[in-house]
Design a protein around this nucleic acid. Sequence first.
DNA 1: TTCCTTTTTTGATAATTGTCAAAAAAATAC
DNA 2: GTATTTTTTTGACAATTATCAAAAAAGGAA
Lengths: 186, 186
Amino acid sequence: MSFLSHLSSIISVSESLETELNSITKQISVSKNQSIINFGNRCNDIFFVEKGLLRGYYLEEGKEITNWFAQEGEFGTSFYSFVAMKPSFETIQSLEDCILTQLPYSSLQNLYVKFPETERLGRIITETYYIKLEERLLSIQFKTAKERYLNFVLSKPSLLQRTSLGQIASYLGITQETLSRIRAEI
Amino acid sequence: MSFLSHLSSIISVSESLETELNSITKQISVSKNQSIINFGNRCNDIFFVEKGLLRGYYLEEGKEITNWFAQEGEFGTSFYSFVAMKPSFETIQSLEDCILTQLPYSSLQNLYVKFPETERLGRIITETYYIKLEERLLSIQFKTAKERYLNFVLSKPSLLQRTSLGQIASYLGITQETLSRIRAEI
DNA sequence: TTCCTTTTTTGATAATTGTCAAAAAAATAC
DNA sequence: GTATTTTTTTGACAATTATCAAAAAAGGAA
């Protein structure tokens, strides 16, 4: 689903808003395995994935810890950095050749002022992501590694093919070795 | 900090908005150990804690798992239930005698329409809570039980006195016995 | 294809945390 | 103040997951 139709599914997008959105966003192509944002830098943009796959990861004692994946139809950004305009703790990387809709922070802030109905968009999108995050927290807190993996397989089956085991393992909060063993015994 | 001054610290609250807020919210007193929302029911309200302490908890195999605490100046609600208007998975309980500002879902939705600038409030508050949740996720995923407890002591010292060990332990994703041992060795 | 690199699997062992049971301590009620 | 209930601590043991090391498998490049 494209950026505009995604937004249209949440609020009605007037013609003038559509024009404005087209003028402030940019479609960018990113080839596989590029770092779009590096940790330590401010993440000035939010990206909507039209095609491809992004992931955000932290470095924790030299190891890459996947914090999120963003597939087609999802947003990817270093949320803390983007919202607080502080340096990012995470690196955003393309796991495939991507087509992204890029929306800069400042344009979004102006958009909120110029088209107040987009505040609703921002609120609803954030609410949706909050609920997903809460689900994930509970899953990490109270499910076994195996249950979490099975849930991942059910909820994001396509990512199994599109990512590496290590990336999934760290997303689920387990080591790659443990995940490999879990897969062996299923 | 009261509900109104909390909101005023985020956006400028006009006189008419203030009047509206006063008319749609209700100050309620709740004595200690009351269940304000029971799991299985829809959570129709968001509560701002003027005084006292709330917690939200899940029942997981018969055990109470604390999902959040809300102290003075913070909001408490069953977020998923309130936003999605679905039955709540969690129970909200007063841990002390409380004075709460109660804002019903329907009034909030009307407020968003009547005072569009409040969409911004909703967005910013949700963003803030999202960032806190993300921090907590990372802490649970990558910190040891001891590190999480020490971080809790630093970030919410007053809750040590106001809650039980079991409530804190489940909030941190560990058993009460383990937390007791962690405390013994510090 | 063949080599080289990266990813995944497997093995042995250790560390962390959980479970179940009971005792000790603290809080509350009468 | 004493009894009762609740909370916290301690002990013994088990389960889960991590760590370190190495082998096997898979994927890419020339």
